[in-house]
Write a protein that binds this DNA or RNA. Structure first.
Lengths: 237, 237
DNA sequence: GGGCGAGTTGCTGTCCGACAACCTGACCGG
DNA sequence: CCGGTCAGGTTGTCGGACAGCAACTCGCCC
């Protein structure tokens, strides 16, 4: 299931793609030191110059960080699109999220395999059973990403996860509102049921309703907005 | 053009930053050829290696494109997400494109202003009137992006334009098939009519049909069945 | 005179060797 | 035991070299 790249004419591009792949697939873990440029050059059978150009690109993307005299270290395990989407406003991000997740749910319902269902079922149960707010948010994210993965299209989980990250970073306190928990759990269950039944239309409707409800609860009433803006400023770290 | 020597920590980073700045600020315009690596190295007072590493990063970001024997050309005046989405397969990209453009059309119908309509109408007319294939592809792209802009959500045009770029780069010769032109023009007209009428549902349906037709003409016959299953439905509301 | 093909030039892609700056760990002398 | 020194490894930068590609020039041949 390796996404085998589009024919690479230039060696530097090929090396860059392979290194990114290795890092994203977890072959090199976070904060781990990569082999030296000389070793990489040797194992890729190219010169050190080519490796350097590739590493330079990774540094530019924030995937790695190089220190003279020490080596090159993994700074992030995934290319994030934060540079790309990080400057947009939460309402815009949420809208795009909805545009992506509704078809994602539909496709997931049509294509999911058995192991997708097993994972989703477990996440639904975990979400309903988890008390602690932070963990529940994480499980919620995993649930939406698992749906996207069930589409078989790797671009869906990638974009949805990134949007989610940025939204969360911008301090939308999701799912912390009183009484919303039980409701969200029911909505998750409905989405899962539709996907399990293979009913794309129903899955799309359920997901849309879910995101609609989320939007309603995060859209800020006038007096709440000041509080949220304040919270947003404090979560700078 | 006063490019004075740099006094920073890493020369390659400084050169990269300056080149990005020059391109984003319009000092080098779209499709313009940059000075050769040797000239840049000279004017920045660094070696060609450093310039090469910087240019390599720009290529990775999609800002420039280098051709052996010709030179390096400005490919985009702003950072895009090529790195993010450039490694996915065309079918996956197309699927996400559809997921985004259908809601984009719906929102555009609901929110478009008068000047949005004027621009769209002009693009529809231009598309129908243009004979030359290359120009028509460009106008087609502009039409889809203009719709996305009419949503008022800047993230839509951004993502849709990037998806489009990557798809085109991966050598899908869109809209070059005989007889497809007139059909595409009619589909564009239908989308425009729905948007002009402010009918979100109709706009979504028209866009979905349009992308369906495009997919049929560009994709392998293998997944026809999946597409037929998808044809009956409509993106949920 | 006109067309055509062989040089010529300029550019990027790749490789090599070298050296400086820097960090780490081991060794050594006190 | 402690502290300083040194050697080795690593990145950062440099300069040079050559192959391959693309575009242009110019002289040769018809």
């Amino acid at each position: 299931m390796s996404i085998h790249p589009i024919e690479q004419r230039r060696a530097s591009e090929a090396v860059r793609a392979q290194l990114i792949d290795l890092i994203e697939k977890g072959h090199y873990k976070l904060n781990e030191r990569l082999p030296s440029e000389a070793e990489l050059a040797n194992s890729f059978s190219v010169s050190r110059s080519v490796v350097r150009e590739a590493l330079n690109s990774l540094n530019a993307f924030g995937l790695t960080k190089s220190y003279a005299g020490k080596g090159t270290f993994v700074a992030s395990t995934k290319l994030n699109s934060r540079m790309l989407i990080g400057r947009f406003l939460p309402p815009h991000l949420g809208e795009v999220r909805r545009a992506l997740e509704v078809p994602s749910a539909r496709l997931a319902a049509e294509r999911r395999g058995e192991e997708d269902l097993a994972r989703l079922e477990e996440l639904v149960a975990q979400f309903a059973a988890t008390e602690e707010s932070g963990r529940r948010v994480k499980i919620d994210a995993d649930f939406h990403i698992a749906i996207a993965e069930a589409t078989g299209n790797p671009l869906f989980p990638r974009l949805i996860a990134d949007l989610r990250d940025v939204l969360q970073e911008q301090a939308l306190e999701l799912a912390t509102i009183e009484g919303r928990t039980a409701q969200a759990a029911r909505e998750h269950q409905a989405i899962f049921d539709a996907i399990a039944a293979g009913d794309g239309e129903a899955a799309a409707r359920a997901m849309d309703a879910h995101l609609e409800a989320v939007a309603e609860h995060t859209a800020t009433p006038a007096d709440e907005s000041a509080k949220q803006a304040k919270a947003r400023r404090q979560t700078g770290s």
